[in-house]
Amino acid sequence: MFWSKDDIVERLAKIPRTLEDISVEIFEGVPSTNDFLHRVSLSRENSPDAPYVCRHLYKNVNIEQELMYPYLDNALPNEFAIRATQYRFMLPYEIRGCSVRKEYRIFQPEELNTKFPLAYERLLGIKSKLGSDGEKLDSADCYRLEDERFLQYINTPKIIITDHYRLQASYDAAGNHVFAGGIGVILGDPSMYHYVTAILNSSISRAFPEIWKREKKCTSNNIYPKTLKRFPIIFPKGEPVETLIITISRYLIYLNSQKHTASVCSLPYYQKLIDFYKRIMDLLILDTYLTNDLDPRFLEILAENIISPEEGFEYITDMSLLISMQAVKKNILDSPDFRKCKFNNEFTNILVTLKNNVVW
């Protein structure tokens, strides 16, 4: 069978299970209109007395750490791993609870001034700068977020999806990143996060906008919660394949995290490893979604070599892991049977079609 682009999109569109079916919530981040009040930059001087730069007061300021959260910048690539940025986001709220969905309340001006006088002083300074009268903050409404709903999921693990030339997904294990211009996904089963992150970063996601357009859910390539809910989800029939995809997803979180902080001369080295593991992951996902017919020996070679070193390894900076991942790649490529593994004609045709459409 010859698989055209239309055939692939049609097959994906017929998948009944969707991202919405396995999610607790799919939601937008903070409105960008709140940036001027709440977002600050880290100072270049790293001064403990004034670690932040307030661009609206044109000076370095200090703000209580309890109110500050890391900020994801969607202008930068955030594939698999969140890229650390110079920005922090102030949330003048009390976040309560340990469940998936948190309770929150805004600090009223009097309480904010008592508990967090530095934050209060900055907000008052901005108010004065804007020409508002008064020597105090009259109401919490002057610093309340335009849309507070995302606060329910602060400190809850989540996938953050951004549109950096194409859809990119990163796993926020701590759940404490504030983001604008992106979509947050809370899954019902936490064990699915690495697998779903892999799918959202695979070539399958490159075909997703075509599904939106065919079903007239969206006329542009911009991402919205209502369209992402339609993303088709399939799990492998065999546990070994799912385990491989999850492990490679964790490899890629580690590699991308290390790449973000690597020296310029090291970037090609990291990128080659990332490209290798991402290509292997993509083959497994494409087979899961479309054919279920990979060479069993190919899967055996991968399973023999791609193993998880330890729990949480993707969040440590041990360079020995990088060396191990390079060794795994070499062992796979040097396996006597690896180059003998064959893809059937149907699968090869799918790869050619995706490549010709600049998807794979």
Score class of each variant (00 low, 15 high):
Leu351Met: 10
Arg166Met: 12
Thr114Ile: 09
Phe343Val: 03
Arg149Cys: 01
Ile246Phe: 02
Leu290Ala: 08
Gln258Glu: 15
Glu66Arg: 11
Asn201Trp: 05
Val358Gly: 00
Ala327Lys: 15
Phe313Leu: 07
Thr85Glu: 01
Tyr195Val: 07
Arg96Pro: 00
Lys158Pro: 07
Lys59Ser: 12
Val352Phe: 13
Leu19Asn: 01
Tyr171Ile: 03
Leu145Gly: 06
Asp147Arg: 13
Leu57Phe: 09
Leu118His: 15
Ile211Gly: 09
Ser220Tyr: 12
Asn34Phe: 09
Lys340Ala: 10
Ile15Asn: 03
Gln258Leu: 15
Asp35Cys: 06
Lys226His: 10
Leu130Glu: 10
Tyr153Ser: 02
Gln271Glu: 12
Leu351Asp: 07
Leu124Thr: 10
His164Gln: 12
Asp287Trp: 07
Phe150Thr: 04
Arg17Asn: 11
Asn155Val: 02
Tyr104Phe: 15
Ser205Lys: 04
Cys142Asn: 06
Glu314His: 05
Glu110Trp: 01
Arg250Asn: 08
Val61His: 08
His164Tyr: 15
Asn345Cys: 02
Phe27Arg: 06
Ile22Gly: 00
Leu252Cys: 08
Asn34Cys: 14
Asn60His: 13
Leu302Pro: 03
Gln271Cys: 02
Thr261Tyr: 06
Leu255Tyr: 08
Glu25Leu: 05
Ala207Tyr: 12
Arg144His: 13
Arg44Lys: 09
Asn221Pro: 00
Tyr93Arg: 05
Tyr171Ser: 03
Ser249Glu: 06
Asn357Leu: 02
Ile63Thr: 07
Leu294Tyr: 01
Pro232Gln: 11
Ser139Asp: 12
Leu351Arg: 07
His260Gln: 11
Pro117Gln: 08
Phe36Tyr: 15
Asn176Glu: 14
Gly312Tyr: 01
Thr348Ala: 05
Ile63Phe: 05
Pro268Cys: 09
Ile106Leu: 11
Arg83Asp: 00
Phe313Ser: 04
Val264Leu: 15
Ser99Glu: 04
Glu45Tyr: 12
Lys136Ala: 05
Asp133Arg: 15
Leu145Glu: 06
Tyr104His: 14
Lys329Tyr: 08
Asn176Ala: 11
Gln326Lys: 12
Leu299Gln: 09
Ala84Leu: 06
Val30Gln: 03
Thr197His: 10
Val178Thr: 08
Lys129Pro: 00
Phe150Ala: 07
Lys340Trp: 05
Thr18Pro: 01
Pro240Cys: 09
Ala140Glu: 14
Glu311Pro: 02
Leu151Ser: 04
Ile233Phe: 03
Ile223Glu: 01
Asp138Met: 13
Ser99Lys: 10
Lys14Phe: 01
Asn46Glu: 14
His38Ile: 01
Glu94Trp: 10
Gly312Gln: 02
Ser205Tyr: 04
Val30Lys: 05
Tyr224Thr: 10
Ala119Gly: 15
Lys237Pro: 00
Arg279Lys: 13
Glu25Thr: 07
Asn356Asp: 13
Lys127Phe: 05
Leu130Ser: 00
Val359Met: 07
Ala81Asp: 00
Asp35Ser: 05
Asn74Met: 07
Arg122Tyr: 03
Ile253His: 08
Trp360Pro: 00
Phe36Gly: 06
Asn201Tyr: 07
Phe179Gln: 01
Pro190Arg: 11
Leu286Ile: 14
Phe343Thr: 04
Ala173Lys: 12
Asp133His: 13
Lys237Gly: 13
Gln258Arg: 15
Asp293Ile: 02
Glu310Thr: 09
Ile22Glu: 00
Asn74Ser: 13
Ile126Lys: 13
Glu135Thr: 14
Arg83Met: 03
Cys341Leu: 08
Phe343Ser: 09
